[in-house]
Design a protein around this nucleic acid. Structure first.
Lengths: 350, 350
DNA sequence: GTGAAAGCGCTAACAT
DNA sequence: ATGTTAGCGCTTTCAC
């Protein structure tokens, strides 16, 4: 047992271990990294010294020589979004399983901070960057800047992979996302199959990255069923709880005819459900409602919400794997995960 | 413009910048860190060279000499808990504002992984560690191990501060938390003031860190109002949505008399609300319900949930500040943030 | 199988 | 105000 008197102010280094084990620092390094085989007895002595001194290798020094930090940078739009945290959970799980640490920086829902976030991560020398979600739809100028930065980083051997967001044309690295439009189409079809023909699309602002495809899926389903698209049935705008409620109230007051609602997110669906309840409309008796994302809130609602399941954790895991180990080819790839309707209690016959 | 032919496979170093600017590396370092004043013209040349070469300092090399990584390690029980993500958002905001990066590792709700998580962070040489939440109540043995590890790290100048969890006796560093018991007391009092005397406590498993204090607060409020504590009115168990619903159904079927519910979390309250609606009991007409935590779900419920607000983001920010800059004294401190009832629509007169 | 020594890219004395 | 230089703690040739 070491002396209790002198507080160890300075951490032991590999040299301390070498001295204590009676070997060279090179041997200690080899034993600790399994780089080269050492005599069992030598290894034992080294390990004993490590244990004894409570030695922990200096990650910075190691990174300096290996040029790898074993860190994955993650950029998310928000730390409080159930959707992105579902994805982040998958990322973290895969990364930690592979011995990587996740450094996360949030843009706080400001796409303008995306570039800065990537730059912070670049300065830290992370081995790869995951750009999860995008918040609002980018301008082509923003996309161009993003692409330039990603290309620079790619040349420096740091992949920037897009995750849970639409692919960007000409992106130099990979993209792992889900079939956003197909999900919207499936949701709408689900409603159509139940006999609904007047379906209200209740969306967020049009500049959200997911908006265009969700509207497109909605329209596509309508067309397949030979139903004319009615612009009056499309409502977009802010998606805070109160904003959606106000929008719904106005719609109800206006006497707009519809028997079902396709909400672009579960949160929007929640607000719709609340408004409907307040207006005395029964779900799914009078009105059917379907959501999108399958966030935890879906099953706490009354009635439990039928929605489109997005494999968030799986998406995160796959994205992390792709960022860390590549996708097999050197070429940029786009992997699109499937989604499906999960039937609960908020949809009934027309 | 540099040659387009040769792809820059290797990143420029401080020497490249020095050469290009016609100064020494020391000057470059000084200009970049603002350590010492340089002649304006010199600084300009350095900055131009940096710009020109797209130079980014190597964080590992810098950390090696300064012995500071400018990284904050964060241990959370889960990346999908709205409560902890609220706290994490505050942590990330404060850290990034102070130029620190957050490296997060999740224990995936397994307190047994807490030690391992801290150890991972220790190996990375983070400057401080935030232990957010604890999931389940620890054994004294677990606490002892935690304390030992924290003490070791503290000696190595790495503070391990507790965040949003009960203080641990003898903890060598700081603790930033909220008044858990007072919140439970306030919630119960809120119900009592509305005239309720038969109040059901609907909790999670007893080993959750927050459980004991919430029950204690509930009892304390009862006592202050001269109402006898009835053990039959305390229901604890798993807090998944279905588990709580089953529990609630059994309670209703058993004909237990009560006019109000104090749910230990908003999620539990959500499940209770769903069960009540299914049973035809109106809230707050027949039964009043109050939650705890003030998570986003509270305002999506019907009726909107009256609950106890916990300043999650503020808690996170303060904890980060404390971990990064200390609390003023060298002595371990415990900072307890206040909480308050936020009145919405789920509580009515008895 | 093991040791000696040369860096990795940076900061911080110490000179001037 | 700026240059020289000695490390920081590790990995990795290159010898033996």
């Amino acid at each position: 047992m070491p002396s209790m008197v002198q507080a160890q102010a300075t951490r032991p280094t590999i040299r301390d271990v070498a001295r204590q084990a009676g070997v060279s620092v090179a041997t200690v390094s080899r034993v600790l990294n399994g780089t080269d085989s050492a005599r069992p007895e030598t290894a034992r002595r080294v390990l004993a010294a490590v244990e004894d001194l409570d030695y922990v290798a200096n990650a910075s020094a190691r990174a300096l020589t290996t040029t790898r930090t074993r860190t994955l940078g993650v950029v998310v739009p928000s730390l409080t979004s159930p959707f992105f945290m579902g994805v982040a959970a998958g990322i973290e799980e895969q990364a930690s399983q592979d011995g990587y640490l996740c450094s996360v920086v949030s843009t706080r829902d400001d796409p303008g901070r995306e570039l800065a976030a990537i730059d912070i991560l670049r300065h830290r020398g992370v081995d790869a960057i995951l750009l999860a979600g995008g918040g609002t739809r980018a301008t082509t100028e923003h996309d161009a800047r993003l692409r330039t930065l990603a290309t620079t980083l790619g040349a420096a051997n740091t992949e920037v992979v897009l995750c849970a967001r639409p692919a960007i044309p000409g992106w130099p690295s990979h993209c792992v996302t889900f079939d956003n439009k197909a999900g919207a189409r499936a949701a709408t079809s689900h409603l159509l199959s139940a006999g609904h023909t007047r379906i209200l699309y209740l969306g967020g602002r049009e500049q959200y990255t997911f908006s265009p495809d969700r509207v497109a899926g909605y329209r596509a389903a309508l067309e397949s069923h030979g139903i004319a698209f009615d612009p009056d049935l499309v409502s977009t705008g802010a998606m805070t709880h109160t904003a959606v409620r106000q929008r719904m109230e106005a719609i109800i007051d206006a006497g707009l005819g519809f028997t079902a609602i396709f909400a672009a997110t579960d949160d929007i669906a929640a607000a719709a459900l609340a408004t409907l309840a307040g207006a005395g409309r029964r779900v799914p008796g009078d009105i059917s409602v379907i959501g999108y994302n399958d966030e935890p809130v879906a099953s706490t609602l009354t009635p439990q919400l039928t929605t489109v399941h997005v494999p968030k954790a799986e998406l995160g895991r796959l994205a992390a794997r792709t960022a860390l180990h590549g996708s097999g080819t050197d070429e940029p790839t786009t992997t699109v995960l499937g989604v499906h309707v999960v039937v609960r209690d908020s949809v009934g016959p027309a």
